[in-house]
């Protein structure tokens, strides 16, 4: 029993210290967002706001079209993530279940895409999107992102691990290929749909570099890009900057607290190579 108590006394302070280090930047963001700018730049001022300036959030929200940024983020993220889940499930299923000439070659060509970092292709991709006349459009944001070599790979692994009996039974009953995929195989793959869907949603929601390259008009900007423009406009308005950061962080933070279990499983699934 005493060893247990000693263990508690040793490790509990370490846990608290770790929690404080992880929480400090978030607490700093929240408290600074509600301070007056005068208090922010006063070295001797306390950590908590002397007077809570709740109006800062509204001022930041009006200083930049955050509502529009949110709308754009939702359109882009939902379309791109949905697209990634659909195309990945389709190709993953075909590579796991259907035989066709050239299958191995196509599989390895797509896997090659996994090894190509976006940095290595960003210049030609921007030129290509520009040549389609897609700069500052939703299709320019969405279309190049509705495929995922990684997603294909995850779904293929998942379908390979599923027994084929139910699908065979469907075939014996005369169901078409398409029907077997949509009403038998896909429902069986729901755990992967939700794990990969969440991973894909978070990746797209937080994507900054790609929107930076293909959108320049304020009305087409997603939240991360809009926030970076907001940053360059209010460089020394520290309380407004933190209010803007808070506007971008709060919804995802709340979701992440409730969807913690799914996020954990999504990240664990995402580490399979």
């Amino acid at each position: 029993m005493s060893r247990r108590v000693i263990g508690y006394l040793t490790w509990y302070p370490v846990l608290v210290a770790a929690a404080l280090v992880m929480a400090l930047p978030l607490l700093w963001m929240i408290t600074t967002a509600f301070k007056s700018n005068g208090q922010v730049i006063n070295m001797a001022a306390p950590f908590l706001p002397v007077h809570w300036e709740f109006g800062n959030i509204a001022r930041a929200w009006e200083a930049a079209p955050f509502a529009r940024f949110y709308l754009n983020s939702i359109i882009f993220t939902v379309a791109a993530s949905l697209g990634q889940v659909i195309t990945s499930a389709m190709s993953g299923y075909a590579f796991a279940r259907v035989d066709f000439p050239g299958k191995t070659l196509l599989f390895y060509l797509i896997l090659m895409g996994l090894m190509i970092p976006f940095t290595a292709v960003m210049v030609p991709v921007v030129k290509l999107v520009n040549s389609f006349g897609w700069i500052n459009t939703y299709q320019g944001l969405i279309v190049p992102n509705i495929q995922s070599a990684f997603g294909m790979f995850l779904f293929r692994q998942y379908f390979l691990g599923l027994p084929t009996e139910v699908e065979d039974a469907g075939r014996v009953d005369g169901a078409s290929q398409v029907r077997i995929f949509t009403s038998i195989a896909l429902p069986l793959a729901l755990p992967m749909v939700s794990a990969f869907g969440l991973l894909s949603f978070l990746t797209n929601w937080n994507n900054f570099l790609y929107p930076l390259l293909v959108t320049s008009s304020t009305s087409m900007m997603v939240v991360p890009l809009g926030l970076s423009i907001f940053q360059s406009q209010f460089v020394t308005q520290y309380n407004l900057l933190m209010a803007g950061a808070l506007i971008a962080v709060i919804p995802v933070m709340i979701v992440s607290i409730f969807a913690q279990r799914s996020i954990v499983s999504g990240i664990t699934v995402g580490s399979i190579r």
Partner: peptide
Amino acid sequence: VVPVVATAIV
């Protein structure tokens, strides 16, 4: 899970 841009500004 929160946007890198936001925490980087922080």
